[in-house]
């Protein structure tokens, strides 16, 4: 039977779940935004750029992947739109970013669900790289 109590219970559950997730997301979001104000992302992407040829992408595309994985998809899209990529490269990059993005925040959320966040993050990166190599050969 649906009563006022049903709504109250749902509202309370929604509120407590939001609170639970906020406790994870907010501190990490703040830390990640701080990271975006340091030269660290540029340094990681410089380190990665020589390896980009294995997934069929130009070296400068590494910044989009690093930004997408550390920060979020929106950041990566911003970097992507400033790069001259052909349609094959766009598809490779899109698939890699779809499989593996916002790693810090999303791994922490998965961690809250009971799965080890390092396991989640590392396996996503690995899978994105494998997918990139395979799609580069297939397309």
């Amino acid at each position: 039977m649906v009563t006022f109590d049903t709504f109250k219970r749902g509202f309370y559950k929604g509120l407590s779940t939001t609170w639970l997730l906020s406790k994870v997301v907010v501190p990490i979001y703040v830390a990640v935004s701080l990271l975006s104000f340091t030269p660290l992302l540029k340094q990681i992407s410089d380190f990665c750029s020589p390896f980009m040829k294995y997934v069929g992408l130009p070296g400068e595309a590494s910044l989009a992947l690093v930004v997408g994985n550390v920060l979020n998809i929106y950041g990566a899209l911003g970097v992507m739109s400033s790069l001259p990529l052909n349609s094959k490269e766009i598809n490779i990059m899109a698939l890699m970013l779809l499989l593996s993005h916002s790693l810090i925040v999303e791994s922490a959320v998965a961690g809250k669900c009971g799965i080890n966040p390092w396991f989640v993050g590392l396996s996503r990166i690995l899978l994105a790289i494998i997918a990139g190599i395979v799609v580069n050969i297939l397309l």
């Binding site: 649906v2 049903t6 709504f7 219970r9 749902g10 509202f11 559950k13 929604g14 509120l15």
Partner: peptide, 11 residues
């Protein structure tokens, strides 16, 4: 998103 979802779920 979560609050309406949870209300929907309870209903």
């Amino acid at each position: 998103i979560i609050i309406p979802l949870m209300i929907f779920l309870e209903v």
